[in-house]
Amino acid sequence: MADQLTEEQIAEFKEAFSLFDKDGDGTITTKELGTVMRSLGQNPTEAELQDMINEVDADGNGTIDFPEFLTMMARKMKDTDSEEEIREAFRVFDKDGNGYISAAELRHVMTNLGEKLTDEEVDEMIREADIDGDGQVNYEEFVQMMTAK
């Protein structure tokens, strides 16, 4: 299944994987998964984290390695993001709930994920998604960005 991913997608997933893999040992533990999910405003229980890991832990060693992570991402993409997942993601970014993602809100979430971005990089990300040019990202623009192939 992971063989249907483009090189660009694999590179993006590698970057995402390293955000989860806090200690850089090449595997994601339940603790690391929990840290990232909490930084995104989720509050999973230990059991939920274990279930999430077990779902993709092909070799049964209790952690997720990069090939397992790729399989999980490929699977998720095949079920292409349901509207509800996209709306949920939008809410994570839209901290003040005004229906727009500002540069400050984007920077806040990315920083929580451990991504240190310059102001230019954040502005560039907003510009790429900002179709109507108002300097922020509304829900429609967010959907376009998330579903762009």
Rank of each mutant, 00 (worst) to 15 (best):
T45K: 13
I64N: 10
K95C: 15
G99D: 13
E68N: 10
S39Y: 15
T63S: 06
T63E: 03
F20S: 11
V36K: 00
K78N: 06
L33M: 03
R127F: 05
I126R: 04
G60D: 14
V137K: 02
E32Y: 01
D134V: 07
E8C: 08
P44T: 13
K78E: 13
T35R: 09
R107D: 03
T63Y: 00
R91T: 06
M52P: 11
T27D: 06
M73E: 08
D25P: 05
D65W: 13
R107L: 13
M77N: 04
Q9T: 12
V56P: 01
I101H: 06
G133K: 09
N112A: 03
F90H: 08
D21A: 03
E55S: 14
R107M: 15
D79S: 04
K31A: 07
T30K: 01
L113F: 12
D3I: 00
K22N: 14
F69N: 02
M145G: 09
N112D: 14
V56N: 03
R107W: 04
E8Q: 01
G41C: 09
S102Y: 00
F93M: 04
E84S: 01
D94P: 01
D132N: 10
M52E: 06
A2H: 04
T63F: 05
L106T: 03
E84C: 04
D123T: 02
D81K: 03
N98T: 06
N98Q: 02
Q144T: 06
E15L: 14
V56Y: 01
I86C: 06
M1H: 07
T147G: 15
E121L: 00
Y100E: 15
D65M: 10
M125R: 04
V92Q: 07
R107V: 04
I101M: 02
D51G: 11
V109Q: 04
D81L: 05
G24C: 10
T80G: 11
H108L: 12
L117Q: 07
V137Q: 04
M52W: 06
E7G: 13
G26Y: 04
G135Q: 03
R91Y: 15
L70H: 01
S102F: 04
A47C: 05
E15S: 14
V56G: 13
I64C: 13
D51T: 06
K76L: 03
T35I: 14
T111M: 03
F90W: 15
K76V: 08
N61K: 08
F142P: 06
L19M: 08
F142C: 02
T29E: 05
D96P: 06
A16Q: 07
E140R: 02
G26Q: 06
R107A: 14
S82G: 14
T29P: 12
N61G: 07
T6A: 13
P67D: 07
A11C: 09
A11I: 06
D57A: 08
G99L: 01
Y100V: 04
F13W: 10
E55F: 01
T27M: 10
I53M: 15
S18T: 10
D3L: 08
I131N: 14
I64Y: 13
K14N: 09
R87T: 06
T63H: 03
S18N: 15
T71G: 08
A104C: 04
N54H: 08
V122C: 06
F66A: 15
G24R: 11
L49T: 02
L5V: 09
M37N: 15
V109K: 05
D119K: 09
F69V: 09
D123R: 11
F90V: 01
E8F: 08
Y139F: 13
E141R: 07
K31Y: 10
L106R: 00
G114Q: 02
V143Y: 06
A47M: 15
D123F: 11
I28K: 07
T118V: 12
L117T: 02
T71A: 13
N54C: 03
V143F: 02
L117N: 02
A74E: 02
I10Q: 07
A47V: 11
L49W: 10
F66Q: 05
T118N: 08
E15D: 13
M145A: 13
F17K: 15
T80N: 03
E15I: 15
G97P: 00
T45M: 03
V122Y: 05
R91W: 03
R127I: 11
G133S: 02
T63L: 06
L113G: 00
E128C: 03
M72H: 07
E124S: 10
F69S: 07
E120S: 14
E115I: 01
T35N: 05
E32I: 08
T80K: 09
E88I: 09
N138C: 15
V92R: 07
T35Q: 11
G26F: 09
I64G: 08
E115G: 10
D79V: 09
L33I: 10
V36D: 10
T27H: 03
S18Y: 10
T6P: 13
L19S: 06
P44G: 02
K116M: 08
M77V: 12
E105L: 07
P67V: 10
G24Q: 06
K31N: 11
I64E: 04
A47D: 09
E68G: 12
A103T: 13
T27G: 12
L33R: 03
V36I: 12
P44H: 10
H108C: 03
A129W: 04
A2Q: 08
M1V: 10
L40S: 10
D21F: 15
R87P: 09
M1W: 08
S39K: 04
F66L: 13
D51P: 03
F93A: 06
I64A: 09
N61Y: 09
K76Q: 02
M110R: 02
E88K: 11
I64L: 09
F66K: 06
R91H: 07
M52L: 11
T147D: 10
E32L: 06
T6N: 00
D130Q: 04
L106A: 07
K116S: 07
P44E: 05
Y100C: 11
M1Q: 08
M145R: 02
M145Q: 14
E55I: 05
F20T: 02
I131C: 07
V122P: 00
F66E: 00
D123V: 07
Q9L: 13
G133Q: 10
M73N: 15
Q9Y: 13
F13C: 11
T45E: 15
T118R: 09
T80D: 07
G97L: 00
K76E: 13
F20Q: 10
G41V: 10
D81Y: 07
T30W: 00
F66W: 02
D134Y: 03
K22G: 02
R127D: 03
V56R: 04
E83H: 13
E68D: 10
D25R: 15
A58C: 01
Q136K: 00
E141T: 15
E140L: 02
H108T: 09
E83I: 01
E46L: 09
I86D: 14
T45V: 07
M73Y: 08
T35E: 05
K76H: 10
T45S: 11
S39V: 13
I53S: 06
M77S: 14
V137S: 06
E120M: 03
A103E: 00
D59F: 12
E32R: 01
K116Y: 04
E141H: 06
G114D: 02
T45D: 00
V109G: 05
F142H: 06
L40A: 15
T30V: 03
M125Y: 04
N43D: 11
V36Q: 03
A129P: 13
E88T: 05
V122G: 12
F142A: 04
D123M: 07
T45L: 11
K22S: 11
M77H: 09
F93N: 06
D65I: 06
D65K: 07
N138K: 12
Y100W: 02
M110L: 12
G34A: 04
E83K: 11
T147L: 11
D3F: 00
M52A: 00
Q9P: 05
F13L: 12
I64P: 15
R38W: 13
S82C: 15
E141P: 05
L117C: 04
Q136S: 04
Q144N: 03
F69K: 04
M52N: 15
D96K: 15
N54R: 05
G41K: 04
G26T: 05
A148S: 06
D23E: 11
Q42I: 06
